[in-house]
Amino acid sequence: MHELERELKQLLIDVLNLEDVSVEQIDSQAPLFGEGLGLDSIDALELGVAVRKRYDVKIDADSQTTREHFGSIANLARFISGSRAAL
């Protein structure tokens, strides 16, 4: 899980060009959007596309659970490993 979180942080930095942020600086539990890193809904979509491509998980466009999955790096890692286990 820890490895996956690290991988996701790197993905986040790469996809969103967060040049001045390092993997170490991102708190797994911190909210990704709004406060925290200050990402917006376009960032969310870009991240969603990247996650969908890399991990082949199904992401509902408009559900509350999706919003929770993308709430933090920890949530996202849990969601991805959960989806993998379900396969």
Partner: peptide, 13 residues
């Protein structure tokens, strides 16, 4: 399309 989500973006790409 109802909402713009990752699935839609990937389909269109």
């Amino acid at each position: 399309i109802d909402s713009l989500g990752p699935e839609a973006v990937i389909t269109l790409r």
